[in-house]
Design a protein around this nucleic acid. Structure first.
Lengths: 178, 178
DNA sequence: GACCGCATGTAACGCGTTACATGATTAA
DNA sequence: TTAATCATGTAACGCGTTACATGCGGTC
């Protein structure tokens, strides 16, 4: 069994947020706003849109002003799928998509937000703990560090990165949602 | 023209660092040490090893104790390719591999290190500047933030991440190399 | 009417994963 | 000797990119 596709969900998230978009619009939003966390090229997007049409998650918006530009909108079917995606709990496997999910949540008071923050905090706290244990185990003295300096470097970088992310999560966890 | 392969270089880096390894050894090192930054599965690795054999970058080490385990070592050809990879200058396109490159550099006094730190600093300083400009442009008041809260969140996260990385780079740039 | 830009479409390929297969080594 | 384990191998597919193709729409 191959891994389930994720691009459809991201497209649904965009359509749900913006109402109606053409393929071109999506490409632009991907490139300008989400490229830090996610990327897609048009040669991947257009076939996916056709497939989603067939599966009934999106539909062509009637009355387009331009013959060439095709505007899509989400269907009830699609909204259902999207909500299911949102409510899937975060784990190590799908964590790379958490930022994209966040991006699609426009309402500051959404209960999904604090859920995500809590879960992410636990997950990355665990990760930080594991990284620190590895540093402790592998690099107990200066000689071991000098013996594999590159390895030591990227381990310290990973630890820094996780710490910074946990700080950010902590800050947002403690914020009131209004 | 398809994108050039990168897995061969990483394999060369490992072999250069460790002397002689079997496919299994590489898998283990990938999983245990580099998985934070890079991953590979055996079904990708083994065909790659065969291809590299054909291309003359690696060779089978003679006198293996075990009939089944195949131990590889790097050839002169391979060392040349590896050094060329190391000396390629870092840019936005190949930046995702910088951590793996670092990992393969064992010598703390290697001149490559400070080169990488300098270049990375410039690159990510630029990135941070761009992110801050976008935040400035898109979110000038609380209303705009509340209107697209998820977008605001991931933008602030990206800014934090870049700041943390720049701090780490600054720390390592200023370290004496002995 | 000739030209260019742009939204959309198609093809090929590298990257990475899961699933399944094979044959050698080791354990019972 | 039978069973389990393990290193290696193969297949299919989703993800993402570059290159190339098509055809509408506007500009000169």
């Amino acid at each position: 069994m191959p891994r389930p596709r994720v691009l459809p969900f991201i497209i649904l998230g965009l359509l749900n947020k913006n109402g109606s978009m053409s393929g071109r619009d999506m490409i632009k939003e991907f490139k300008n706003e989400i490229s830090e966390f996610w990327s897609v090229s048009h040669s991947q997007l257009y076939p996916e849109l056709q497939r989603m049409l067939e599966e009934g998650d999106i539909e062509v918006r009637k009355g387009s002003s331009n013959l060439k530009v095709i505007n899509y909108q989400i269907t009830k079917n699609g909204i259902e799928k999207l909500n299911q995606w949102f409510s899937e709990s975060i784990n190590l496997k799908n964590d790379d998509l958490t930022s994209v999910k966040l991006y699609c949540i426009v309402d500051r008071r959404s209960p999904l937000l604090s859920e995500i923050f809590e879960k992410e905090f636990d997950l990355h706290n665990q990760k930080l703990k594991h990284l620190k244990e590895r540093r402790q185990m592998l690099f107990q003295n200066q000689e071991q560090i000098n013996n594999e300096y590159g390895h030591y470097l990227i381990l310290t970088r990973a630890i820094r990165r996780e710490k910074a992310y946990l700080d950010w999560l902590k800050m947002n966890k403690s914020k009131k949602n209004r």
